[in-house]
């Protein structure tokens, strides 16, 4: 037999320490998890949605890009398609929201033949410059909103809508 035999006293104290340790861990772990939970939480609203549009295809001419996501209204789920007007300004990619700041119609690029280089709202003739700035004298009172833009594997991703940052 080996020399260092475990005495009854030692055996009991080891067992008690072990079991006590497990119990303490069982109490402390959830506490710790709750304490650091806010750090681990992903930020709702900061979600970027990947579109089917390649970054390389974006030119200086604004094009319509579809943005699909699921919207939950109470128990009713529906897939919603939003649209963004996407173009390149220098090296920067710009995605403007198509919602007119007047009463919420959809604006169109260049559909007014007298102003081919402006966004045009067919409801009440509102016009915006390419950077989204509202043309004075037309109904809209503010510039078009802007999407946050990100690149993901060569494809364009659009984030939450924020106020226009291009218009100074």
């Amino acid at each position: 037999m080996s020399n260092n035999r475990v005495s009854r006293r030692q055996f009991l104290s080891y067992t008690l320490t072990g079991v006590g340790g497990f119990m303490a861990a069982g109490m402390l772990m959830p506490m710790l998890r709750f304490a650091i939970d806010p750090v681990l939480q992903s930020h709702a609203g900061g979600n970027f949605i990947k579109t089917e549009h390649k970054i390389a295809d974006i030119t200086e001419k604004p094009v319509k890009v579809d943005l699909k996501f699921e919207q939950v209204d109470a128990w009713y789920k529906s897939e919603v398609t939003n649209v963004a007007w996407v173009f390149k300004q220098g090296d920067q990619i710009v995605a403007l929201s198509p919602v007119c700041k007047h009463l919420g119609c959809m604006v169109d690029w260049g559909s007014d033949s007298t102003h081919p280089d402006q966004f045009f709202c067919s409801c009440h003739g509102g016009r915006y410059e390419k950077n989204g700035n509202n043309v004075k004298g037309t109904p809209p009172l503010g510039p078009l909103d802007e999407y946050e833009v990100k690149e993901e594997d060569g494809y364009l991703s659009l984030g939450p809508i924020r106020a226009n940052t291009l218009v100074k």
Binding site: C100, H102, G104, C105, M106, C123, H124
Partner: peptide, 10 residues
């Protein structure tokens, strides 16, 4: 509803 979305303000 699609028409509404396009011409909401009118």
């Amino acid at each position: 509803s699609f028409i509404e979305q396009q011409f909401k303000g009118r």
